[in-house]
Design a protein around this nucleic acid. Structure first.
Lengths: 196, 196
DNA sequence: TTACTTTCTTAAACTAGATTAAGATTTGCT
DNA sequence: AGCAAATCTTAATCTAGTTTAAGAAAGTAA
């Protein structure tokens, strides 16, 4: 498979427009292909000008460390998804880390602006727009955390992301749902029992 | 003051571009000016094709009702801010309601798309972009809810939005922070006592 | 000004989830 | 295959926040 597909797929979905070969080449050249082992930190709190990542293969998490040293997972991203800190190029409070061995394409903010400008692909506010879908996703997440119990949140996560439940360690899922690993274990035991 | 300033201000901030008089007129015509008394519901769960609102004067909240009938406040918006459900034109799960008497300019999704297309003002991903700032805001909110205690969250809200603490009833702030009004009252009493 | 509604305060009893501790199971490396 | 590290499970105890109830204070309308 051609290595540029993850990036071109991203842009095609973003714009709804089919890029011509020249544009595809331009976009492809702008990104940097990287391979990383699992548990590799791609950026850390305190870094500035952090990059945006498109995932061709693997699994990545965006997290931060609270005042007590506990890790809070904000986002997981898998193949054909993007991840990074949208506050870039300002200094980030987050860590970006691979959960599995991953192959990604990354770009700096200025490079991304250049690509968008060069291709005259300013985004619309269309509901299928990537940024807008990201907004809706994280708003739904906030709504769930505020309005549902830990058990409800786990069952919802499991239903929406059955593949991620298989691929991500339970303690990382607990840190994503805002509950302790011990309590998640209890919830899983309870809901598995009921299913039998 | 000219009544179109809230809308033109919005577009100028969104695009970083000064609109000419013809463009200003076009944008102005696309929006609908509305005045609403406090506690007016602008849209309800189940409505489709809900509108986007720019606030010239007043205070508005976006909320939903959880499975137990409790209201969860997701967003507050005041003068020169926008509010609505970005999942429009799909059916909404949210309610939009005025907290104070308000003067707003509203537009449908299709009208907004038309304005953006007509003015060739597709948005960039620039960090100052409105949608991107909204994303960062709500991500920060999620981070706070997941990583801080109720007391920390209240003190942070008070520090960042001292004006809103004055204008918004405590029970609505409690519903925004994900805690009960009684517990917020307790937190306020405790932190006020320490300050003396 | 008065009366009613809304908002806020207080506290006792309760609970969802955290913490702590210990051990079991699974995974990965040599 | 064996051992160490990582992950998961279980349960007792604790706690941040909820619920319930009652009354006080503030706001609003007549």
């Amino acid at each position: 498979m051609d290595t540029k597909n993850a990036v071109i797929n991203f842009f095609t979905r973003q714009t709804g427009v089919e890029l011509n070969l020249e544009q595809e080449e331009f976009v492809h050249q702008a990104y940097r292909k990287e391979s990383h082992k699992k548990k590799t930190i791609l950026f850390s709190a305190g870094d500035a000008n952090t990059r945006h990542y498109i995932i061709e293969k693997g699994l990545i998490r965006l997290y931060l460390i609270d005042s007590k040293g506990k890790e809070i997972n904000i986002l997981f991203a898998k193949e054909n998804q993007v991840i990074g800190d949208l506050a870039t190029p300002l200094t980030t409070n987050f860590y970006l880390e691979t959960i599995e061995d991953s192959v990604v394409y990354s770009i700096e903010e200025s490079g991304l602006q250049k690509v968008m400008t060069e291709l005259k692909l300013g985004q619309s506010l269309h509901p299928n727009n990537g940024l807008r879908r990201s907004y809706i996703h994280i708003q739904k997440r906030l709504v769930s955390i505020l309005s549902k119990s830990a058990e409800e949140n786990y069952l919802e996560f499991k239903e929406i992301h059955p593949d991620l439940v298989q691929r991500i360690p339970q303690y990382l899922i607990a840190g994503y749902l805002g509950i302790s690993p011990e309590f998640l274990s209890k919830v899983i035991a309870k809901t598995t029992k009921l299913k039998s």
